[in-house]
Amino acid sequence: MADRIGTTVDSVDHTRPETLEDASPSLAATRSPRVTGGTPSDEHAVILELSDVNAYYGDFHAVDSVSLPIREKEVTAFIGPSGCGKSTVIRSINRMNDLIPTARIEGAITYHGVDLYAPGVDPVEVRRRIGMVFQKPNPFPKSIYDNVAFGPKISKYSGDMDELVERSLTRAALWDEVKDKLSDSAYALSGGQQQRLCIARAIATSPDVLLMDEPASALDPIATLRIEELMYELKQEYTIVIVTHNMQQAARVSDRTAFFSVDVKEGQRTGRLVEFADTATIFTNPQHDETEDYITGRFG
């Protein structure tokens, strides 16, 4: 019987480690899995800071006292029910609200420490640095090339325009699809392609912040996911602020999420910021019941 056991022992002996140290995996050398979605690091500098921002349309108090920092090379999402002021806030960041005669912003929005609403600040200059992509794809009724070249031409870009157009389209993940038809009308493109063209157009002016106001709400699911993937790529280089009514989208693409809600007082609907935190926290352990109710679909 001992023989039998002996052979058995021999047959398994090859797996036996000589010493414990040999078998011990070198923990220092094992790479930490690259998984995003955890807490974003705070190493990214604050590029935009909203302090006590109030927005009015005439007598109507649209947004009440919003304060939040936006860090560079991150995606910051604004979510909330309609009328919560999220679009108003994002449009105040590059002074698009100036185009509405009755709109008025109080409080401060600083960009690299400069108050965007200080006297002497030219909104045109602001918008060249803080680009915008809109809800509905809105390419100009021009060729694909001219759409991308529009911003650079306006700001008297002196470099190689062809190269800039190619670079912008490449970054917007559209180059391969359009490189053979740059002189075609932008309207010949599909909705998703048009939106990526609009992103390319915005990139072409070399902004460092991209504001996206529900950029995928007019697109089909596949086109939406492509835009989201693109945002993930773009945040390596740009700071992105996105307004979305699609909570899942905010969850998928953003590093930090601001949840806005709306108060109805004397018939006035005033938006306010309820909670601002890293996206994983908002979607796994929100600190406010309102946030919880909204993201779990139990709102109102």
Binding site: G38, A251, R252, T279, A280, F283
Partner: peptide, 14 residues
């Protein structure tokens, strides 16, 4: 660590 990551992906990526 991993459990939290899986949890986060479940929460964020649907």
């Amino acid at each position: 660590d991993l459990e939290e990551k899986v949890f986060t992906i479940l929460a964020l990526q649907q």
